[in-house]
Amino acid sequence: MTNEELITELTTIQPNLVPEAGGEWPNFFVEAADWPKLAQALRFKDDLFFDYLFCLTCVDWKTHLAMVYHLSSTRHRHNIVIKSKLNREKPEIQTVCDIWRTAEFHEREVYELFGVNFLNHPDLRKLILPDDWVGYPLRKDYEDPINMIKL
């Protein structure tokens, strides 16, 4: 599907999607509550068939956090970016590791580095940092006077 077709198709499935201009691939903002339903549709609808989650990350915008999911289809070869704004104080979003299994580790990484709580994740623990680590290092206001070198 071309980018224009993808935009029309997705706005029919989920009318309250907010498309974002710019970027190489279609960008959409989705409400965190609508994300599980949309993820199911993206993965299992035959003409969309986004079976490959190639990048899962988070961006700290100081006022809010934004989850970023880069999806690709190995059958149709189209790409899409889904974003979701989360409350910085209590960031919560449904896990997608039952749909794309690679998300299990990537979500654990985002959990410890940004503090996003993934609901219904089977094993949400720290992956890279020690268990007693305090704070979320990739947030913009993170301070570590001992280990951080400021340039």
Binding site: D51, Y52, L53, T74, W100, R101, T102
Partner: peptide, 8 residues
């Protein structure tokens, strides 16, 4: 094949 794609 399916697992390889799903696991990225």
């Amino acid at each position: 094949k399916e697992d390889a794609i799903s696991y990225g």
